[in-house]
Structure formats: structure tokens, C-alpha cells
């Protein structure tokens, strides 16, 4: 167990170091998104109200984090596997769980950085108040929600026969998430026959919780627990999908 944890941290460190050249671009994008969104919203909805602002903040946080997890983890694992990096891990005394946990930890760090840049800037630009407690809860919700999507990214990354397939699959999943998550709009707007998608997507519950934190600071522990429970099968699928020895 100790070895699995140590290896997880080493693999996360390897991944983070490998991304350091892109760190500045990542931070700039995190700054540019709220600035760009502010400009677009002011053009699209002159006289926009608090609900609109909250919807946009929720959409940015929930959707960008979920797309980062699905696309990022899916592509990362596929590239490691198809580009030959995985051979080094496979032939070293490393448990497959350490690899998945290491990649997951890397992306959770990225999402955490994204949140702590985005939330303060967006709230300052859009003129509504969130205290440290609200911000912390939102970050916890986003992290738990991201965990639920790890499995999807991992399964795509470990199964895709080539990079093109993994890109197509992650794009398809991303499209479903963006379409069926009531982040920018309410559930009522989604056509009834597609509404079941809302209820099975963890991003729906995350969106509801983020919106409540922004509007009245209410924390629905039941929803948070639901979200945490949803992460278990998703994460389990991710771990069992990783094989060191091919048949």
C-alpha cells in the first residue's frame, strides 16, 4: 500500500513536471476565459441579472473541469500507451493503480489551479460576493465531480486503438456532457426525451450545488454524498480497465 502511494506521487510529479512548459499558457487561458465570457455575455444579454452570471460561472467551472478530466485523462493515457511511455511503467515494479491514481492526481491539481484562478476573477468581474467558505465548497464539489469522470477518461485511454479514436470518443462524451448538463440553463430547457441524461450525469448534481453556493450559500450534503457515491463505480471502472499485461 505504501509503495502504491509513493509511486502515485512520483507518477503525478513526473506528469506535472512534463506539463511545466505549458503552465503559463494554462494560467493565461484561465484568465482569458472569464474576461472573454464577460465580454460575450455583456454583448448577448445587456442588463444581465445575478442568475445569468451564476449560470455562466457554473458552466465555466463544471464544464471546463469535466472536459479537462475526460479529454485530458483520455488523451494522456492513450498517448502514454500508444507512444511507448507506458512500457516503462509496465516493466517497472509499479502497480497499475498507481499509474491511474498518479494521472488522476495530476489532473485534479490542474483543476484546482483552474478553480482558484477562475472563481476570484469571475466574481470580481461580475460583481457578486463569495466568501472563502463558499469558494472552498465549490472547489470540493468540482473535485468530487471530476473524480466521477476519471473512469470514463481512463476507459477511453486504455481501450482506444489509436489517438484518433480516443479523440473522437472523448469529443463525443464531452458533447453529451455539455449538452445534457443544466449549467448554463435549467433542466426544463432540455427536451424531455433527453432529460434522463441529466439525471445520470454527475455534472448535473455538481451544477446544482455550485449554483446554490453562489446564490444563497446552501450546502446540500445529501447531493454531495450522492456525488461522492457516484464517483465510486466510475473510479472503479477506471482502475479495473488498466492492464499491465496484454492478452
Amino acid at each position: 500500500m505504501k509503495k502504491i502511494l509513493i509511486d502515485t506521487l512520483i507518477i503525478a510529479k513526473i506528469n506535472i513536471l512534463s506539463m511545466r512548459e505549458n503552465l503559463m499558457a494554462f494560467i493565461i487561458i484561465s484568465l482569458v476565459i472569464p474576461l472573454g465570457m464577460t465580454y460575450l455575455i455583456s454583448l448577448a444579454s445587456p442588463g444581465w441579472n445575478l442568475n445569468t452570471k451564476v449560470n455562466y460561472l457554473t458552466g465555466m467551472l463544471v464544464l471546463s473541469s469535466s472536459l479537462t478530466v475526460v479529454n485530458g485523462i483520455g488523451q494522456f493515457i492513450a498517448q502514454d500507451r500508444l507512444g511507448g511511455v507506458l512500457s516503462w511503467y509496465r516493466t517497472s515494479p509499479v502497480h497499475p493503480a498507481s499509474y491511474i491514481l498518479g494521472v488522476t492526481f495530476t489532473y485534479l491539481v490542474a483543476i484546482f489551479i483552474q478553480c482558484i484562478i477562475l472563481i476570484p476573477i469571475a466574481t470580481i468581474l461580475w460583481g457578486f460576493y463569495l466568501n472563502i467558505f463558499n469558494i472552498s465548497i465549490i472547489i470540493v464539489v468540482i473535485i468530487v465531480q471530476s473524480l466521477t469522470l476519471v473512469g470514463i477518461g481512463a476507459v477511453i485511454g486504455t481501450r482506444a486503438k489509436n489517438i484518433q479514436t480516443s479523440t473522437a470518443l472523448t469529443n463525443l462524451i464531452s458533447f453529451i456532457i455539455v449538452f445534457a448538463t443544466p449549467a448554463y440553463y435549467s433542466i426544463d430547457v432540455i427536451p424531455e426525451k433527453f432529460r434522463f441524461l441529466c439525471y445520470i450525469l454527475p455534472t448535473t448534481y455538481a451544477s446544482l450545488m455550485v449554483k446554490r453556493q453562489c446564490l444563497d450559500g446552501y450546502l446540500d450534503l445529501y447531493l454531495l454524498l450522492m456525488l461522492a457515491l457516484m464517483s465510486i463505480p466510475y473510479v472503479a471502472v477506471g482502475f479495473t480497465g488498466m492492464r499491465w499485461r496484454e492478452k
Partner: peptide, 19 residues
């Protein structure tokens, strides 16, 4: 085998030694 493009030579060898 492939290498991790943005990692240095020393980092590659050291971190795999740790693993």
C-alpha cells in the same frame, strides 16, 4: 519505448529509479 518530451535526461533516470 517513448520518452516524456518535457522531462530532462536526469529526471527520467532518477524518477524511474524511484519507481
Amino acid at each position: 519505448g517513448g520518452l516524456i518530451h518535457h522531462l530532462t535526461v536526469w529526471e527520467h533516470v532518477y524518477y524511474f529509479a524511484r519507481l
